[in-house]
């Protein structure tokens, strides 16, 4: 399927409200604060969607410190403002964000898959989805079209594969590295952008209080024994990401049977007790 955002987004795209959530990234080599790669892609996707609709309805939202210089590198992509929910470092961003999002009720919320700094648990989209009661689509590569309240989405799978999904609005999507790269951040607009600060009620992250944080240890890597016979196999083994084995595809069975299979699996994996 060819992503074709220029034609597909007409229809009912006009009055879409999009929110891209951004965090403070961290450069892997220098450890310096920067525009996070996936969050940058979330903004890029949001900007492309907003540009193809008639009204500029993209809000770029950050929960944290509005003085953080790295926020300006998102603004340098051509944003007039960045909305910041002012929080203390100890605060729980999920609660404040979900309150804000509940109140403003956007149609699409875009986030990165996981933050580059902080807890970096990758839980944010799920926690937001839980509190808002919205579907969460993980690791999307593109939003192909939005028609009559239904979005056609490409989800990124390993080895360049894509899965086409249709999702009813509103939804939360985490943006994969396979999504289009964020545009260049320019100094002028970055410097001039307005940091729209919003004071808000915040609660301390009580769960985190009990944690003690130590720096990560490099874990030993399991040796990969390649039993390939041909050069093509060796190449595949060297380049391919491992794909989960097992599972089964149920397409034609009745819904009750499909639900039962999911329930059984969750029990088996110990997710449900």
């Amino acid at each position: 399927m060819q992503p074709d955002s220029s034609t597909g987004l007409n229809g009912k795209g006009q009055d879409l409200k999009i929110v891209s959530l951004i965090s403070i990234g961290q450069h892997p080599a220098s450890g310096r604060a920067r525009r996070a790669e996936q969050d940058g892609r979330a903004v890029e996707l949001g900007m492309t969607l907003a540009a193809s609709s008639s009204t500029q309805n993209l809000t770029v939202l950050h929960a944290g410190d509005s003085q953080q210089a790295a926020l300006r590198s998102y603004a340098g992509m051509g944003l007039e403002s960045v909305r910041v929910l002012q929080l203390r470092e100890s605060a729980d961003a999920v609660k404040t964000l979900s309150e804000y999002l509940h109140k403003h009720a956007p149609d699409i919320i875009l986030t990165g898959v996981r933050a580059e700094s902080g807890e970096s648990s990758g839980m944010m989209p799920y926690l937001l989805g839980e509190s808002l009661g919205w579907p969460v689509v993980s690791r999307i590569a593109d939003i192909v079209s939005i028609k009559e309240g239904v979005a056609e989405i490409l989800q990124a799978l390993p080895r360049g594969q894509r899965r086409a999904l249709t999702v009813r609005l509103p939804f939360i999507a985490s943006v994969d590295n396979a999504a289009p790269e964020p545009r260049q951040s320019a100094f002028g607009p970055a410097n001039r952008a307005f940091m729209e600060q919003q004071q808000c009620h915040s609660e301390p992250d009580t769960a985190r209080n009990g944690w003690s944080i130590v720096s990560a240890r490099k874990r030993p890597k399991r040796l990969k024994i390649v039993k390939a016979k041909t050069a093509a196999d060796r190449f595949k083994a060297a380049t391919a990401k491992p794909q989960g084995a097992g599972g089964k595809i149920m397409k034609n069975q009745p819904a009750a049977e499909q639900a039962q299979a999911i329930f059984d699996l969750l029990l088996e994996e110990g997710v449900l007790r």
């Binding site: 080599a29 310096r32 340098g76 260049q184 320019a186």
Partner: peptide, 29 residues
Amino acid sequence: TMEKGSTPNKGAEVLDNLIATDNPNGHAP
């Protein structure tokens, strides 16, 4: 570069690296 953000090809990457690592190829400082 500073207003349009349209440095071609590897320009943007090199500039990002210079900002984040003080060298054009993004090596650890």
